[in-house]
Design a protein around this nucleic acid. Structure first.
Lengths: 205, 205
DNA sequence: CCGGTTGCTGTCTATATATACAGTACAGGG
DNA sequence: CCCTGTACTGTATATATAGACAGCAACCGG
């Protein structure tokens, strides 16, 4: 059952109020906004909207109007990590350029932060210079996964491969050479695994 | 001036209530949650939090507590369009698989919907099979832009090039041939331009 | 023509809520 | 030692708000 034009207008008003004021409107506020002289007109609309499943009324609570669609909770705020300075943790405040809100459901694994990828070494995996890699923070990786690794204070994104005590970090671009690491002689820290890629395309040209 | 432990706890409770209930708590609800026997205790905390700038009180309005940081508003809900059937508009309800909430600020141009890309024809532009293309709906395109085009009821993603009355849709993969269209003899509809790419990486392997 | 739905007005009431005052207790700085 | 700030209790009140009843008018399908 779809909404009437009037009901849609009232639904939109409620949604807009929640978005701009941060709180749902009262019956009186709805009435005022639409010129009703009785708050009960708003009450009737609310009941109709609830019956059609467009909204959820909490009953007994002031401003107790909920949009069921929004019940999924706000999407996670992911910090965007730019260049990581040598020797400091990847999520140090000074690396965080800003926050983006990205729907969790977009990725099968929940990401913890976004890392801006520099260079062309993962080009053939469809990860280009400037792309944002959604990263799940974990100290372990399985072969074939795209990992964020730190070798001697350098943070790099590569495909992970392991052969006993030897780890190989494979670029996806023939112009770059694989990095071989003997765990017994060199330090390697897995900062996380890539769970998604985000790219902004230039709308100009 | 930073918050005391008690004030921080109350602030956290307010933030959590807004996130889970969709509406801010009343003084009484705060008092109940913390075991205060008087709602005035909550009132005092709210005033302290407001004085320190952590919250904003609306005054005279029930549940009128706002978190200044959250004023940014909810990110847009973008419909995900799967395969588009021949002859029907791209945003027809039956094509929409689900909705994702993606931060507008992620892309320089505001997208209108997400389109699942099929095939490898744009591989060298870093757009792989299964990727989601964030599309801004517009009937016009400039050379060099990645466009969503419809030719004879087929929807395709290619790079746009124009040479007078001849339009070329260029793949980014040497295994595919460019599509040449003479606008005087063939129909071409630009459905939109690509403003971003989203990819889910398989966390398994 | 009837019965249902939409879309309101006017009036009313119980309760939810914001907000106040007076007072207690404790802690830290000057 | 006084003063200011934190952290409450207990009581109180004005107002904000949800939610109800009765009724009117217009429309629409059977």
């Amino acid at each position: 059952m779809s909404l009437t034009a009037r009901q849609q207008a009232i639904f939109d008003y409620i949604a807009e109020t929640i978005a701009t004021q941060g709180t749902a409107p009262t019956r009186s506020e709805i009435a005022r906004a639409f010129g009703f002289r009785s708050p009960y007109a708003a009450e009737c609309h609310l009941k109709a909207l609830e019956k059609k499943g467009a909204i959820e009324l909490l009953g007994g609570t002031s401003r107790g109007i909920r949009l069921p669609g929004a019940a999924r909770g706000a999407p996670a705020e992911l910090p965007l990590v730019g260049r990581v300075a040598a020797g400091s943790p990847i999520l140090a405040t000074e690396h965080i350029e800003r926050h983006y809100r990205v729907d969790d459901a977009l990725f099968r694994a929940r990401p913890d932060y976004l890392l801006r990828v520099h260079g062309e070494s993962m080009r053939d995996a469809g990860i280009l210079d400037g792309d944002l890699l959604a990263v799940r923070q974990t100290p372990e990786a399985r072969p074939g996964q795209i990992v964020v690794a730190r070798i001697e204070d350098e943070v790099t994104v590569k495909r992970f491969a392991q052969d006993g005590p030897k780890v190989r970090l494979l670029p996806e671009n023939p112009d770059f050479a694989p990095i071989e690491i003997d765990l017994e002689r060199q330090d390697l820290a897995i900062e996380g695994i890539g769970v998604g890629v985000l790219r902004d395309l230039d709308p100009q040209a």
